[in-house]
Structure formats: C-alpha cells, structure tokens
Simulated assay, not measured.
Amino acid sequence: MQKPAKTVWLFGIYLLIEGLFLMLAPSSLLSSIGIPDPESVWRIVIGFVVAVLGYYYIRNAKENLVPFFGFTVQVRIIQFVFFIWLYVFERGTLALVVFSFIEFVAGMWTWNSLKRSRA
C-alpha cells in the first residue's frame, strides 16, 4: 500500500472506531467533546453513518483510488472550517473544534503524501 493510501486507510480505521463508539457508547464520546447525550436513536444512526464512511475510506485505500484521497482532503478541510463556524456562532463547543482539528491534520497528512507521491 502506497503512503497516500495508508493515510486514508488509517483515517478509515479512526472513523470506524469513532462510529462504533457513537453506536455502542455514545455518552462517553459525546461528553468528551462537550455535547450532551441526546438519548435518541439519531446518535446510533449517526454512528452507523460514520462507521460506513470509515468502511469507504478503508476500501478505497485498499483499492488505491487516488482521486478519492484528494476528495477526502477537501472534505476534511471544509469540516474543520464548518466546526469553527459552529463554535463562533455558539452552536458547537471548543472541544468539537479540537476534535475536528485531528481530522484536519490527518487531511493535511494525506495531502502531503499525495503531493510527494506525484513528485
């Protein structure tokens, strides 16, 4: 597996774990980012969606679908900006911004790996 694929594969594992936590132990994950547990089925649905995204990342990395890698970088940057926007307008917590910063850094790692693999 080439380095760009490896970065996406690892991020897929991260998403899969995050999704499983949201499905199986939502209170622990949500409280760590300052969001109250809504005690509804939607937290499980979102956990499932995140886990599915993780699966997509893993499968695309295994297939070495390079265009997908670039798309993930774009979305991870947009997500970080969106969570900052939520925080600025008092709809999200600073912990949520910090949490999304991890995804932003992972996106920059993928972008850097893509840039180096093209050189």
Rank of each mutant, 00 (worst) to 15 (best):
M108L: 15
V75P: 05
L86W: 08
S113G: 03
N64Y: 14
V98G: 03
Q74I: 15
L10T: 09
R118G: 09
L10D: 03
I35R: 06
G34Q: 09
I33S: 03
K115Y: 14
I35H: 02
F99Q: 01
K115S: 06
T7S: 10
V81W: 00
F21V: 02
P38M: 05
R116H: 14
K3W: 04
P26S: 07
W42K: 02
W85S: 10
W9S: 09
F89S: 06
Q2G: 14
M108K: 06
F21D: 00
R76T: 11
G70F: 06
K115C: 08
R43V: 14
L114G: 04
A51D: 10
V49H: 06
L15V: 00
P4V: 03
G70E: 03
A51N: 11
M108E: 01
F71T: 13
G54N: 05
L94A: 02
I77V: 15
T93N: 04
I35S: 02
P26Q: 03
Y56G: 05
I77D: 08
I13H: 04
A5I: 08
A95I: 03
Y14P: 02
W111Q: 13
L24G: 05
L114N: 02
Q79H: 02
G12I: 08
W85P: 04
I46M: 06
I77T: 12
L30C: 01
N60K: 12
A5Q: 09
I33F: 11
A61D: 09
E103Y: 14
N64R: 15
G54W: 06
L20W: 09
N60W: 15
R43T: 15
G34V: 11
K115R: 14
E63V: 11
T7A: 06
L16V: 07
V73M: 07
G34Y: 06
L10A: 02
P36R: 10
S27M: 01
Y87G: 01
V75S: 14
V8N: 04
I46T: 04
A25V: 13
E39C: 06
S28Y: 13
A51H: 06
V98W: 08
F71G: 10
W85A: 02
S117N: 12
P38G: 00
L114E: 01
I77P: 11
L86G: 06
K62L: 14
W42C: 01
S113T: 02
I33A: 01
W109C: 03
T72N: 11
M1S: 09
N112C: 04
F99N: 12
K3P: 00
F80H: 03
G34P: 06
L15H: 11
F104H: 01
A51L: 08
E18P: 00
A5G: 14
A5N: 14
F80P: 00
S32T: 07
W9P: 05
N64S: 13
L20F: 15
K62H: 10
A61E: 07
G107W: 11
G34K: 10
V8W: 10
L20T: 03
F104E: 00
D37P: 00
F80K: 08
G70P: 04
T110E: 02
I77A: 14
